[in-house]
């Protein structure tokens, strides 16, 4: 690990003031410290934002505001989240381990980096880590990488479970930074790799996530389901966050987001559009899934994710419809 300076921020404004090139914000540290030890992250300076008073979960009418420093455990255990946003509680509980959830913050969870093996190994090429060095995963180890929205530069996936639920819920990410405050609606925080895979998100240097605000929960039942070969403590092969609102067998509203398939938590808008206003039948669910997965460009060793995602969409919708 490279030597660095450490300072605790007194307030969000203080954190932003302390930011200069080479600075990184330290939240729970569960991914950043991991990446620093691997040599993937090499900050000159850490500004610790984990102690900022951003750790409240507050109700605001039918909305819920979650401070960026709220720990994953506390989010999933919060009575309002469990009752009103079960999809989110389940997504958080599906991620990592009890220990990691106790440490990891909401802001940090959103800003996790990919677990692609090439990205994590500084002795191998990776366009995300070293722009222009190449993407060996495309010909190599991509068994758990992206099938949707990938590019010739990068086939990484975003590892977060929570972000998938937030994408389905249409959460808003509150950011403060050198350019002032702004609000970024999910799933717009994360970006596809294109030819600049080094950028995971639309955040600018010095931007600090201060809160995540949830709109009123979508009507109807909701689900988060995660597929993995180890029964716990494993990243998703594919996961799904979905909500379905039916009236008289007709889909009034529908939210579908997929994890483990793309560089972003993938909001399945094509599938949603195909369903809304139509009959909630098995055929319609399959057609919607296939409409979405027409966009898939699988590689030889991750091609299984296409039938997996299709099955998961169909089965999840069937379950929500019943």
């Amino acid at each position: 690990m490279k030597q660095f300076e450490y300072a605790r921020a007194a307030s969000p404004a203080d954190a932003v003031r302390r930011f200069e090139p080479g600075t990184m914000y330290l939240g729970g540290g569960t991914n950043l410290v991991d990446l620093m030890r691997l040599g993937v992250a090499q900050p000159d300076r850490l500004v610790d934002v984990s102690h900022l008073p951003l750790d409240a979960i507050e109700q605001d009418g039918d909305r819920l505001r979650i401070g960026a420093a709220v720990r994953n455990t506390d989010l999933a255990a919060h009575p309002l989240v469990r009752v009103r946003y079960p999809m989110l509680a389940r997504a958080v509980l599906a991620g990592a381990s009890g220990q990691v959830r106790n440490m990891a913050t909401i802001g940090g969870n959103l800003l996790q980096r990919t677990r692609c093996g090439y990205y994590q190994d500084v002795t191998r090429p990776c366009n995300k880590r070293r722009p222009g060095s190449g993407c060996p995963a495309i010909e190599g180890d991509h068994g758990n990488l992206a099938i949707l929205g990938a590019s010739d530069s990068c086939v990484a996936t975003h590892p977060s479970d929570m972000a998938v639920a937030l994408a389905a819920l249409g959460a808003e990410v509150h950011v403060t930074g050198p350019g002032g405050d702004r609000v970024i609606p999910m799933p717009g925080l994360h970006r596809l790799p294109g030819d600049t895979p080094e950028r995971d998100t639309v955040l600018e240097p010095g931007d600090l996530i201060t809160a995540v605000e949830l709109p009123a929960p979508p009507p109807g039942p909701s689900i988060y389901r995660k597929v993995r070969e180890r029964a716990s403590f494993a990243f998703a092969l594919v996961s799904i966050a979905a909500a379905l609102d039916l009236r008289d067998g007709v889909v009034r509203d529908c939210r579908i987001a997929l994890g483990g398939v793309a560089h972003v938590p993938w909001r399945a808008e094509r599938a949603e559009q195909a369903l809304i206003g139509g009959q909630a039948t098995g055929e319609a669910f399959l057609a919607a899934a296939e409409a979405e997965l027409e966009l898939a460009r699988p590689l030889p060793r991750n091609a299984f994710k296409v039938p997996l995602a299709r099955n998961l969409i169909v089965r999840t919708l069937e379950e929500l419809a019943s």
Partner: peptide, 22 residues
């Protein structure tokens, strides 16, 4: 790297991976 749990301690009463804490 927080992947095995052998380093678990209680930090302010909560279990945590001490390898991931600076």
């Amino acid at each position: 790297h927080g992947q095995c749990g052998a380093c678990t301690v209680l930090i302010d009463g909560r279990r945590a991976n001490s390898c991931l804490a600076l």
